[in-house]
Structure formats: structure tokens, C-alpha cells
């Protein structure tokens, strides 16, 4: 390999991408999420799905941008993919590089730990969005009138769009993955962790349509 991935990521970020105001980005994303919560009556499961879908569509486009600017070839294995996603892809688009940890022994899964998240810069979630279903012992829904229609299930994964992006982008390079948040500081967790699991390496085929 010509350059370590970390240096490559930094180079690409510095010299090859046009930058926009980060606050504009964060505020725009925030207001989209807020609007979706409102439209879906605070049904966070649905909001999560929609965000993931948005991300997927973005990912399928961003991958081209990524390949063009990074000039990277094929990854040797999934572990290599993990490093590339963390050090080059996230660096290039968001100027962050999450840490890769917990690589599964068979190297079919890895976790990304986000120390910073430009999407969530100004965010504090309301109590209702943080309630987390813990098995069947999920607490009863407090019947505050605003929340009356919210079922006590999934919490809001605020940055779910990132999972979608990872999923969409990797699918375009023949890696079908499952990406989901395991924990999020916005929900009061210690750190924000995204788990990416390889489902299968796709043969050359037409990807299933999703819009």
C-alpha cells in the first residue's frame, strides 16, 4: 500500500473535497429528524427506518464520490474495509475518524466507536426519545398527552442516517452488511457504537431496488 490509510484520509479531506459550513449541515439534519418525528407521531421505529433509508440512498451515491477522490483499490478483506471506512470515508465526508474495535474473530463484523459526531453537535433528545425497551420489562408508557400516541419501543437512533450510508455504500462494492447502533451518547450511553456485520459478499447482480 502506498500510503497509510490515516494519512490518505487526511490528505483527501485537506485537498480534495469542497467543504460546507458544519453548522448548516448539523442544523439541517436536525430539523429533518425533528420533522420526521412530528410526521410519524413520535413513532421512533418508523423514524429510524426512514433515516436509514435516506442514508442508504445517500450511500449509494457517496460511494462514487469516495472512489473517485480516494483512488483506492479493492480492500483485501473485511478488516481492511473497516479501516478504510473509518479512516478514509468518515474522514473525507465528516472530518471524523471513528475507532475500529471489537473485530469478530472471523473478521465478519466490527464496531465503530464515535468520539465525536458532527450530526449531533447541538442535540439533546427529549426523555420520550430516550426511553429504551429492555426486553419485556419496558416501563409503562407515561401518558403525557404529547406522548400518548408513542408506543414504548425503540428509542430514537438520532444518527441512524449514518448506518444507512454505510450500508448503502458498502452494498455498491458488493458487500451486503447490516449496520446498526448499539449505543449512543445521546441516549445516555458511555460511547456511540455502530456495529457493522457482513452478511454476504454479493456476486455481480442487480441490487434489489429500494427507494
Amino acid at each position: 500500500m502506498a500510503k497509510p490509510l490515516k494519512t490518505l484520509g487526511e490528505d483527501v479531506w485537506r485537498t480534495k473535497v469542497e467543504k460546507v459550513n458544519g453548522e448548516l449541515f448539523a442544523l439541517t439534519y436536525g430539523s429533518i429528524v425533528t420533522q420526521l418525528c412530528r410526521d410519524f407521531n413520535n413513532n421512533y421505529a418508523k423514524v429510524n427506518t426512514q433515516l436509514d433509508k435516506m442514508g442508504y440512498n445517500m450511500g449509494t451515491r457517496l460511494i462514487e464520490e469516495f472512489l473517485a477522490r480516494s483512488q483506492l483499490g479493492r480492500c483485501r478483506d473485511f478488516r481492511d474495509t473497516a479501516e478504510t471506512v473509518a479512516k478514509v470515508a468518515f474522514k473525507m465526508f465528516l472530518n471524523i475518524s471513528p475507532t475500529v474495535t471489537n473485530v469478530a474473530p472471523d473478521a465478519k463484523a466490527f464496531s465503530l466507536i464515535f468520539d465525536e459526531n458532527p450530526l449531533a453537535e447541538f442535540v439533546e433528545l427529549p426523555e420520550s426519545a430516550r426511553r429504551r425497551a429492555v426486553g419485556s420489562t419496558a416501563g409503562p408508557v407515561e401518558n403525557g398527552d404529547a406522548m400518548a400516541s408513542a408506543p414504548a419501543q425503540a428509542p430514537l437512533w438520532f444518527s441512524n442516517v449514518l448506518c444507512g450510508v454505510v450500508r448503502g455504500a458498502l452494498e455498491m462494492v458488493q458487500l451486503q452488511v447490516d449496520a446498526r447502533w448499539v449505543s449512543d451518547v445521546l441516549l445516555g450511553d458511555e460511547c456511540s457504537e455502530m456495529r457493522v456485520t457482513l452478511i454476504k459478499v454479493l456476486e455481480d447482480e442487480v441490487p434489489a431496488g429500494e427507494d
Partner: peptide, 9 residues
């Protein structure tokens, strides 16, 4: 933040 990310959004 890179521009393509915002456009995507």
C-alpha cells in the same frame, strides 16, 4: 463537513 454529504442530505 464535505459538500457531497450536504447535497446528499
Amino acid at each position: 463537513v464535505a459538500e457531497p454529504a450536504l447535497f446528499g442530505l
